[in-house]
Design a protein around this nucleic acid. Sequence first.
DNA 1: AAATATATTTAGACTTGGCTAAAAATAGTA
DNA 2: TACTATTTTTAGCCAAGTCTAAATATATTT
Lengths: 218, 218
Amino acid sequence: MFSLAEENYLKAIFHLQQESKGGVSTNAIAEKMSTKPSSVTDMVQKLAEKKLLSYQKYKGTSLTSKGSKIAAGVIRKHRLWEVFLVDKLKFHWDEVHEIAEQLEHIQSDELVARLDRFLGEPDFDPHGDPIPDKNGNIKTTEKKLLSELDKKQRGVCVGVKETKSEFLQYLDKRNITIGTKIRVLGKEFFDGSMIIQVGRDQFFISKKIADNLYIQTS
Amino acid sequence: MFSLAEENYLKAIFHLQQESKGGVSTNAIAEKMSTKPSSVTDMVQKLAEKKLLSYQKYKGTSLTSKGSKIAAGVIRKHRLWEVFLVDKLKFHWDEVHEIAEQLEHIQSDELVARLDRFLGEPDFDPHGDPIPDKNGNIKTTEKKLLSELDKKQRGVCVGVKETKSEFLQYLDKRNITIGTKIRVLGKEFFDGSMIIQVGRDQFFISKKIADNLYIQTS
DNA sequence: AAATATATTTAGACTTGGCTAAAAATAGTA
DNA sequence: TACTATTTTTAGCCAAGTCTAAATATATTT
């Protein structure tokens, strides 16, 4: 139905929209896709003709509901495949992204439905991100960044914002994963760094780390 | 490493080589790939430059060992994914071909290794075709076409030559699947049609059917 | 408000993989 | 052997998606 390139653009724009609410700039898309702004302009015009997004020269773009639905479908497949790779094939959570980037483009509604059932209709992927349902609706959970917590607050790690291997491996070394309880013992206002407690261990983390961990405070 | 189009050409040539031993003609490739001979010439020249096949103008082509290995790798993935779809996702054996055509191009050696293990390192796909090992070696089994059997001979169905849905559904209606015992009760020499026994049932089949069923006579 | 900087678009080119139409080689037949 | 039919290749064109360089809008600064 849609080409690989088209699906990737829709997905990128969808993610950018989530992050920053409002129109998405050409440059932002180009950066996210590691491509040139001129290429983005071409593709965005093509997608606008197909009514997948609305676009005005120099004004940025935003997905139409049709475009959002397709993007959500791709993201649904991505996250379901990640669950498969981790739960069934025993991949580590830092190894699955690139493979899922390929698998997300496999076309077959029946496959997605059966995969979903096979996996037990999961709600979240291995990084804690919500899996859109078959209609493209995403369950938005109220979650905070660890960096937003104050001293003495506590919560449970429910997701990661960054999914790069280096970051996930850093978390592993410190035994932080989805479901881990974290308590803020101290917070430095100058640089946002923290001392946190994880299990019986206490250690220092930088703001950059705290900015990429989602926490649910109960 | 290799493009989708390149992999598909290598796979098609590999299959044609199996069937007819010797060089493969441009037209044969074009027919198998539903494309034009002129397109085949272009691609074959490109693949020859990459040392994946040997080619002489007007003389046909045959894969180099490098080309064979890549083709076998694609076929390995195709057949492993078919096992996954049937064994794990409970697809019917006539529904899996097109999806596997897509999945066979996913690039990740680690994925293939883990999938293989997850599936129990199967030797055959759901249609009875052997799955090449990680080095590209295919276990060749001594199997005959049902049409080659004579009256009163018997054997076990070990595979199908044709994998179109209509054919597989025809077999299902008659309760023929991999492992089914078949006995030839009668054979008409004029048109090659047969009367066969399957379980307690006896029925007539045309030569076209008998030409597409692989039998192992013990 | 003018000048400069940044963001975006346009124009033209390239690559991949496909096509059509015409030319050339091989095969088949009288 | 010569003529015809078939197969294969060449040449030129097209669409998708990308790029560079140049032009144009918008934003920011002074």
